[in-house]
């Protein structure tokens, strides 16, 4: 195959949207945001006191690529998991408003949430191997996802699973299909998770560090798949990443988080012009291929940041 544009995987191309109702590409122009969060707060109650993981986060996003960056522990993953209501006790989630495509996520019953999870909102977890079933062959897990979401025959599910593996640039899909999760390299596990999460054609994909284990050429091709889903199907993408340069070149907007809050929201291509000292500090700590230095700058945190935003 020698197309000069990478093709959207066939498995995704012939999508069937009939049972998904509203929220497909056709109303991409609709003014209603895909996701609105107001004043999200997540606390973890432990024996040694309370961790305030998210402290009043508000955001609104459409069918766009929104990057979420911020230092470790700033609440990026917890925010993603809160949207899917995957925070378990002793974690406590509160918000003034949390609405996905007209559905109130705060008051939705567990049955509604189950229908949303993995179908309309999918999340690629930060730790791919942890999310795969260790005692089930990789291919069977993908095929099962197809059968659950697309109601296809066993044989077709297998064919499509192989196609998905190829789409995420797995070199020998047959071998990987029959592999156990522990037999995958770090980047292979990550791509398997991406493949699985794309199968239901979610309206919102929360991708938590989806390419951190991929080499840069493969990462770029995998990002292109997500990019195409945003532009052709109007998927919304919440892209959580530590890679500031990648986010700047890939996303539309970037949310910068600090200590459970949004410090600033900035147009991705202007990320390098950000003025906030926290964002500047993050940018300054990057090593650069063309600027050798002995020691890297680290962040000097200002207590005043905790009161901001």
């Amino acid at each position: 195959m020698t197309t000069d544009r990478q093709e959207t995987p066939a498995a995704l191309a012939e999508h069937t949207q009939e049972d998904k109702g509203a929220g497909t590409a056709t109303d991409a122009q609709a003014p209603r945001p895909l996701l609105e969060i107001e004043d999200l707060r997540v606390d973890f109650h432990g024996r040694r006191g309370i961790t305030h993981a998210v402290r009043g986060l508000s955001l609104s996003m459409g069918r766009e690529k929104i990057g979420i960056v911020g230092e470790s522990g700033s609440g990026k993953s917890v925010t993603g998991r809160s949207i899917l209501r995957l925070i378990r006790p002793p974690g406590v989630v509160r918000a003034r408003r949390m609405v996905f495509d007209g559905i109130d996520l705060l008051s939705a019953d567990e049955r509604t949430m189950r229908a949303i999870r993995g179908d309309r909102i999918a999340m690629i977890m930060q730790d791919p191997k942890f999310s795969l079933n260790p005692v089930m062959r990789v291919g069977d897990q993908i095929a099962e996802a197809f059968r659950v979401h697309r109601r296809v025959s066993r044989r077709e599910a297998k064919e499509r699973a192989l196609e998905m593996l190829k789409a995420v640039r797995i070199r020998d899909p047959e071998r990987v299909y029959h592999a156990w999760p522990h037999e995958l390299s770090g980047g292979m596990g990550q791509r398997v998770m991406i493949a699985m999460m794309l199968i239901p054609e979610p309206d919102l994909l929360i991708a938590d560090e989806p390419t951190s284990a991929l080499d840069v050429t493969v990462a770029m091709q995998v990002l292109a798949i997500m990019d195409d889903l945003v532009s052709s199907r109007g998927m919304g993408l919440m892209f959580i990443s530590h890679d500031l340069d990648l986010v700047a070149s890939f996303c539309d907007r970037v949310i910068i988080m600090y200590a459970g809050r949004v410090m600033e929201v900035i147009e991705a291509k202007r990320l390098h012009e950000a003025q906030h000292p926290y964002t500047r500090g993050l940018l300054a700590s990057l090593p650069r291929i063309d600027e050798p230095r002995e020691w890297l700058q680290t962040l000097k945190r200002d207590p005043a940041w905790l009161e901001e935003a």
Binding site: M1, T2, T3, D4, R5, Q6, R169, D215, V216, T217, A219, M220, Q221, L223, A224, D227, D245, L246, A248, S249, F250, I289
Partner: peptide, 27 residues
């Protein structure tokens, strides 16, 4: 060289080029 190129940031056309190169290589 491709690795160095990819490290310079995301670009849809670049991604297509890598995909095409890999497809060629597999033939």
């Amino acid at each position: 060289r491709n690795l160095l190129d990819a490290a310079r940031g995301y670009d849809r056309e670049k991604a297509a080029r890598f995909a095409a190169m890999e497809a060629l290589e597999e033939e």
